[in-house]
Design a protein around this nucleic acid. Structure first.
Lengths: 345, 345
DNA sequence: CAATAAAATGTGTTCGAACACACTTTATGA
DNA sequence: TCATAAAGTGTGTTCGAACACATTTTATTG
């Protein structure tokens, strides 16, 4: 498989490299005769432009802003930051400048503000964790007007102007949680779904998971699991759990729909309650600890680091190498136990 | 973070770009005074050479050969071929030429022959599936003498001359299989480990998995699972299973140490035996079918496609961008059930 | 059929690093 | 002190694609 250059093609076609260039890029100003000659050669050979040379010439500096919650406010987002750091290193020598911007996960205004700031910087692209639905729609619109490409990760909100999303299928993820619990609890047991959130920002996120979870059990034949849902803020969690796990409780299993599952585990450890199975999300240090202790039984890995890194890779490949960005990139839903945990760290 | 070029540095240091180049590449022929001036500038700024320009200039064509078993003989290797195809596409435009070479997985001679052939081609690197231990040692030696870089994947054989390996921790993988079965079988149940192989080429591979599997159960306190190991060739498998699963069998679970687990599932389907739990390896079409049918309970995903692709990426990054190749790259050990399967396809 | 516009084509420079080669300065020995 | 070697330094070309600009060819009009 010989490698051809523009010059090679020009010689083969008996024209100049300028003409070949115009044909390839459809810039017009080419006679029918020349066009045919060049196309004849192009159809003969498998021309792959040297991407190194191409992006070297372009020489443009690309600026990508990542907008995500502050990981000091919610540790879930720390791996995302690590993903950004990795990407910064990796892509700096290609002239891509990646910059993170943080907002408060419970404060819509900080979300709006930071996006306003980013918009003013007019970067080439924005990678966004769209926690707030309504506001995201407006913001994405503004970005679109300013010709800024927007990709989203983690939360899949259907907005017209962005079609790029990196994340997981949340419904399926809920089903998986259900199937895992089913394996280790008795038939028709009582199950609690717990949504822990401050202002229900994540509500769509959590609701999808719940739907999937319930869907799994509803689909079972000859089974009648008792599933109750509890919404609570972090501060009220302990009281809530206290009221659920009173003396008469028959709840055998808990599905926590976010990475906050360690908060629930805290409770069980403190109260020395055993034999309640717990499934939750994400490899936070606290969760890992409880998984190893056997208090949490399964974690579902959403791999936020990979989500961010992949989202950024797509943008870089798009800018540098004209690759298309996949509209939807759904990552595998990894099942984590204390046994295979290590291999993911 | 401004981007500096050699020319920038030369101006800042008051020398020519040639001198800067000599300093950066430690080519010598630089006076102490000039060296100091350039180093002063270099320590001030964060110079990252433009990798695009660098590899463009190098212009060299790299040739990488992948040596692996013929996937027509064993479907396990098909995804590897897909990984190669993806890499071929991806890296062709960077001047990297990747070529697969197949040997017969049960024929040492074909392994030796094909490697001889590859050696004669004197590629820049070889990515190797080292099925046969003794022969691999000799072959790797020959490659080393010819200054050909060797990376290995799938089977981790400790040879002096190669330190690059992409694969999984097999011992851990065995432990994971054990932990999965433990969740769904009764306490102190009887378990069969089945090694299916023609000539025990994979023996090290399979033995590691068995060790891990047994280690898990041995470690349990107050438990006494009965674990028996059976070695069999594919042709003899049915008879063997017949003798194990006779009327008095109490075997509740089976661990098949390779992707051939569908062969075992074939038996159970044909004989209408239910309630025997099965764990095996890899997402072959046949295995996927049995997983969905509920005959196979878990599959462990070794992601051979990713192994090959990653192995090739490392080599390309090494050649093009001077990145170091990690000595050992252990991929996550994915637990696959009928629920999360789809997200891996 | 000039004159001029319009279209087509070719030439040359640029991106940044790498390196060959030419040139200048310093060191060494007779 | 001069010749010559050795060390140090700078200049210029190359990689391949992209594009600006100059030049040539063809079409159009009075």
């Amino acid at each position: 498989m010989k490698k051809y250059t523009i010059k090679n093609i020009a010689e083969l076609a008996g024209v100049s490299k300028g003409t070949v260039d115009r044909v390839i890029h459809k810039r017009g100003k080419v006679s029918v005769k020349a066009l045919e000659k060049v196309n004849a050669v192009l159809s003969e050979i498998d021309y792959k432009p040297n991407l190194l040379a191409r992006s070297l010439k372009k020489t443009k500096e690309y600026h990508i802003c990542v907008v995500l919650p502050d990981f000091n406010k919610d540790p879930f987002w720390r791996p995302c930051f690590e993903g950004i750091e990795a990407a910064v290193q990796e892509f700096a020598s290609f002239g891509v400048f990646i910059e993170p911007f943080f907002f408060h996960p419970n404060d819509v205004n900080s979300f709006i503000e930071i996006n306003k700031k980013v918009l003013e910087l007019s970067p080439d692209a924005v990678l966004l964790a769209p926690l707030f639905y309504k506001e995201t729609v407006a913001i994405v619109n503004n970005y679109a007007l300013a010709d800024i490409i927007v990709s989203k990760f983690n939360n899949q909100l259907e907005t017209e102007k962005t079609k790029n999303f990196v994340g997981q299928d949340l419904f399926k993820s809920g089903r998986i949680a259900a199937s895992l619990l089913q394996m280790i609890i008795s038939k028709n047991a009582a199950i609690a779904i717990i949504h822990i959130d401050e202002d229900y920002n994540n509500s769509i996120h959590m609701q999808e998971k719940e739907k999937g979870f319930r869907h799994y059990f509803n689909e079972l034949e000859d089974a009648n699991y008792v599933i109750n849902t509890y919404n609570t803020k972090q501060a009220a969690l302990e009281n809530r759990l206290d009221s659920i796990f009173n003396n008469t409780s028959k709840v055998e299993a808990i599905f926590v729909t976010t990475s906050k599952v360690y908060k629930v585990a805290d409770f069980f450890k403190a109260k020395h309650i055993k034999n309640v199975k717990i499934v939750g999300y994400d490899l936070l240090d606290e969760n890992i600890q409880y998984l190893n202790d056997g208090i949490i039984n399964f974690l579902i890995h959403q791999d936020p680091k990979k989500q961010v890194y992949l989202g950024l890779s797509y943008l870089v490949d798009y800018f540098l190498f004209d690759k298309e960005i996949p509209a939807k990139s759904l990552l595998p839903i990894d099942i984590i136990t204390s046994e295979n945990l290590e291999t993911y760290l």
